[in-house]
């Protein structure tokens, strides 16, 4: 069964550059129309349909508002299915990854809270740069391979920021 793509649900053209504020506004408008609360009085079937439509809307919003997931989704829309885990052929980036991780381990070892804050800011800058590179690359259909590589980097940084959160939690104990 054909189902509208995440972008179409929001009446948007597939694109990496996205106004997140506007996306949020549109999400709230759409949620108003399909949320099961609007169908509390309706038949069982309409309630079920509302549940399904709301779930698809929430899923679409979750993917689109997150840069790495949006990038991955765009690549999947326009090409062969992407395996979740691949060996990354990206030696320069691998080196940088190792540095990031070592730093994070040191921060954990020294329980350095302000160090973690600085680390987070640097990570954010790196993520913004990467997003910009992907956006430029995505506009050029000939640079798909490079786009895939950048998407992998984005995923890695996303995972790293998740680890930072876990570290913060441990330091909070």
């Amino acid at each position: 069964m054909g189902s509208p793509c995440h972008f179409a649900l929001f009446e948007l053209q597939p694109s990496f550059r996205l106004d997140l504020e506007q996306l949020a506004v549109r999400y709230r408008e759409l949620a108003r129309q399909v949320h099961p609360d609007r169908f509390a009085d309706a038949s069982e079937r309409d309630q079920r349909l509302a549940l399904e439509q709301s779930a698809s809307l929430n899923e679409a919003y979750r993917v689109l508002k997150n840069a790495p997931q949006r990038a991955r989704y765009l690549l999947a829309l326009s090409g062969p299915e992407l395996p979740l885990e691949v060996t990354v052929q990206d030696p320069g980036f691998l080196m940088q990854q190792m540095h990031w991780r070592e730093e994070l381990e040191d921060l954990q070892g020294s329980a350095n809270v302000s160090g973690v804050a600085t680390f987070k800011r640097r990570l954010k800058v790196a993520q913004d740069e990467l997003n910009e590179s992907f956006a430029v690359c995505w506009d050029d259909p000939l640079r798909r391979e490079e786009a895939e590589r950048l998407m992998r980097r984005m995923q890695f940084l996303d995972k790293l920021s998740h680890e930072v959160r876990q570290l913060e939690e441990r330091l909070d104990d």
């Binding site: 054909g2 189902s3 509208p4 793509c5 972008f7 179409a8 053209q13 597939p14 829309l77």
Partner: peptide, 27 residues
């Protein structure tokens, strides 16, 4: 009547979005 309901929903969505350029993908 389930399948009928689904078709009606599709038709409604399509007519609501008619005239705009939209992507449909197979999932």
């Amino acid at each position: 009547t389930d399948a009928f309901a689904a078709r009606r929903l599709d038709a409604t969505v399509k007519s609501a979005l008619a005239g705009r350029s939209l992507n449909e993908i197979e999932e």
